[in-house]
């Protein structure tokens, strides 16, 4: 049996949660001020995940980089491998929002997708109306 102390992030209360684990299962969550906190405590201990946002190099675009995100939260443990893959990656302009830049990043089953449009250099897609 192990106990972990974490802070809940769901609301400004920031309850101090005491999560008791036994053999990879959550036995008890204490200190939560509400039901959502209980769920958060369990998830954060068993399978903590984060959405990673960063940028990827663009070749031949009107901007040198495109902002990207993991399409869903990835396991915390995979963050640095994910960053390695993002830093190694490259995409050719034009790039569209939602376009998959890296498939199955760091073996997480989750894609890295573009979060902005980048036109080809000189073909300025001005957000002009």
């Amino acid at each position: 049996m192990t106990t972990r102390n974490i802070t809940c992030i769901l609301c400004p209360q920031g309850c101090n949660l005491e999560v008791t684990l036994d053999d990879g299962k959550v036995v008890q969550v204490k200190g939560n001020g509400c039901g959502k906190g209980k769920t958060y405590g369990a998830e954060e201990c068993l399978d903590p995940r984060r959405t990673i946002t960063s940028s990827v190099k663009v070749i031949g675009g009107e901007h040198p980089l495109v902002s990207v995100k993991t399409a869903a939260p990835i396991p915390k443990a995979a963050i640095w491998d994910c960053m390695k893959a993002i830093n190694a990656a490259c995409v050719e302009a034009p790039v569209r929002i939602g376009q998959v830049i890296i498939e199955n990043v760091a073996d997480t089953g989750i894609n890295v997708v573009a979060t902005r449009n980048v036109a080809k250099a000189g073909e300025g897609e001005e957000a002009c109306i």
């Binding site: 902002s67 995100k69 929002i97 979060t115 902005r116 449009n117």
Partner: peptide, 9 residues
Amino acid sequence: ELTGPEYAQ
């Protein structure tokens, strides 16, 4: 849950 550029777009 969107990023800033996505929300702006």
